[in-house]
Amino acid sequence: MNWSRHIRSSFVLLVFFSLLTGLVYPLVVYGLGQAVFSHQADGSLISVQGQIIGSSLIGQDFTMDIYFHPRPSYAGQGYDARASGGSNLGPTSTDLLDAVHKRVLALGTSGVSFVPVDLVTSSASGLDPDISLAAAHIQIARVAEARHASVAEVGAIVEANVITRTFGVLGENRLNVLQLNQALDQSMPVKQ
C-alpha cells in the first residue's frame, strides 16, 4: 500500500470538491436564485413604505386585541427568529400540561366549548407563521370588537385570506397571521 500516494490523491480530491461543492455549486445556485426568484431568495420579506415589517414565512408575535394572535412560541422569548426551536416538552411533562391549561383559561372562551389545539400548543420551529381556520374563527369576535367593526366584516377578511391545501391535496388549510393582520390594517385602519 502506498500511503503517500493515497494522501496525495485524497488531498487533491478534497480541495477539488471543496471548491466545486462548497463554492461553485452554492454560488451558481445563488446567482440563478437571485436572478430568477429574487424575492424568495432574499427571504420573502414584506416591506411597507420602504420599511421591512417581516417575512411572510417567519411568524411574529401579536399581542394587541386588534390583531389575530399566533400560536405560542418557544423561540427565545417568543418568535425570536435567532433562536428557532420548539418547547421539547414531553407529552406527560407537567410544565407542558400546566402551560396548555393556562392558555386555554387565558383565551376566556365563553360561548366556545372547544379550543382548537394549534392555538394552545407551541410549534416545532417557534416561528410557525400560520394558524388553523378554527384558531382564527374563535378570535374574530375579539378583533371585531377592538376594531369597532362587525363580526361579518372581519369574518370576510379572514375568509379572503385562507390559504387552502396545495393542489387541494397537500398540507392543511391555514391562515398566515402576518398577512391576515396586514390585510386587516389595510381594510380597516386603526388610529394609534
Binding site: L89, P91, V115
Partner: peptide, 23 residues
Amino acid sequence: FGVDQTISKQNPGGNMEGKEVRF
C-alpha cells in the same frame, strides 16, 4: 382541558405540540 384535537378542514387536530400547522 377542553381542547379540540379532532382532525378536520378547520383544525389540523391531533397532538400539535411541536408540530407546524402547514404540515
